[in-house]
Design a protein around this nucleic acid. Structure first.
Lengths: 214, 214
DNA sequence: CGGCATCCTCTTTGATACTG
DNA sequence: CAGTATCAAAGAGGATGCCG
């Protein structure tokens, strides 16, 4: 990116992470961990392949990511965040939080990938009833399944299947996303095809940490 | 900005604030309060005037800013952040914090404006010796003078002159910025022309809240 | 197949000039 | 003061080709 020419931390930071696609690329590495070129391209639908290559070069030069050969027996190149790159997580979180109200206006051809939910699920949900013991919720949307678990008051989320979920939500990513972030009610979600197996009351244990999400 | 087409809070947010210049425009409104068109252009050296007009239109449509006639006797149009716009401050802070280490590499023709210091001074400094009573420090760099004050353990900063500063720093914005954010030592700053009137020991009362600023 | 580079078109930005 | 108009330059999008 062309320099802003300002002696200002925000301006200097934006010269590194302010380009189109760059923060979404960072999001992929934050949620997925080390990725290959193809993983990144799949997580960034619509990016031109030459542009992805260029962004990777720039970020490596800036010390935000590092590329390395995958350990045998795996093959190919892995891209991973450096420590400096990991330090971008508060930025991703702040931006994602601010974006939650915008999840109302999704276009019909907007795409969804379950792992995009992981960062906000981890940081924005709290368990309001830890005394009721650990709980697992299974989310089944378009692609990979997600487990949301609350243990001792801390919420975690990861890709995978729960052995014994208290609750399974099954529906479109669009509907599940909006339900989880309080954009629609449970009744509305059902009307939009959400299927629920298990105890819906478990859902009320989880609450958004953010106060005024308008 | 062209849509990313992703059902993801980060992506949706970046469609509003991810354009070039946009977050710097927000920075101006956050630090300055309501601004006229010309104030904004002055605080964004290098922006094309048509681009500024376009950004203002987009941000108003997105509900981030609002434009209004200045109250008489003043005249002209004022731009101010809406509540939704004010909610961008955590993003500006996170990005600015991440950018602090980048203040090392300033180009010779980079420009400086004192008010760019205000946001980080307010949020990143702490007073380590509140029991020593209130203190004011005066910063005199290129353009407007700044007062940094610590009262009852909270640090504030604003444009203006202190009546009775315990300490006055006089030097280039580049040098003062880097000194305040721990990029250079006091000795180094002196070598770069920093002049100090008063008790330099008062400077050690202030410490960065950020731990690992590498 | 994974990991790009090239080529071409289209959009966005930059620089400057001009206006009510 | 608060913008619009115009045009050149840079960047993004999309298709395709190349190489281990």
């Amino acid at each position: 990116m062309r320099s802003y020419g300002q002696i200002c931390g925000i301006a200097k930071a934006l010269e590194v992470i302010g380009d189109r696609w760059t923060l979404l690329l960072i999001r992929e590495l934050l949620t997925r961990g080390p990725c290959r070129y193809t993983d990144l391209r799949n997580g960034l639908p619509g990016i031109a392949t030459n542009l992805l290559a260029q962004r990777l070069r720039e970020l490596e030069r800036a010390g935000v990511i590092r590329s390395e050969e995958a350990l045998p027996p795996a093959t190919g190149i892995l891209y991973r965040l450096t420590e400096r790159g990991q330090a971008l997580e508060p930025i991703a979180k702040a931006i994602g939080d601010w974006g939650i109200p915008l999840l109302n206006d999704v276009a019909d051809d907007d795409v969804f990938q379950t792992h995009w939910l992981l960062l906000p699920l981890r940081s924005d949900l709290q368990d309001t009833a830890p005394e009721r013991g650990p709980v697992e919720i299974q989310l089944d949307a378009e692609d990979e399944p997600i487990v949301v678990e609350a243990v001792d008051g801390t919420v975690n989320a990861y890709i995978g299947r729960a052995q014994d979920p208290a609750l399974v939500l099954h529906g479109s990513g669009r509907t599940i996303t909006r339900l989880l972030f309080g954009r629609i009610t449970l009744a509305e979600a059902r009307r939009r095809g959400l299927r629920i197996d298990g105890d819906p009351g478990q859902l009320e244990r989880f609450r958004l940490k953010l106060d005024a999400v308008a």
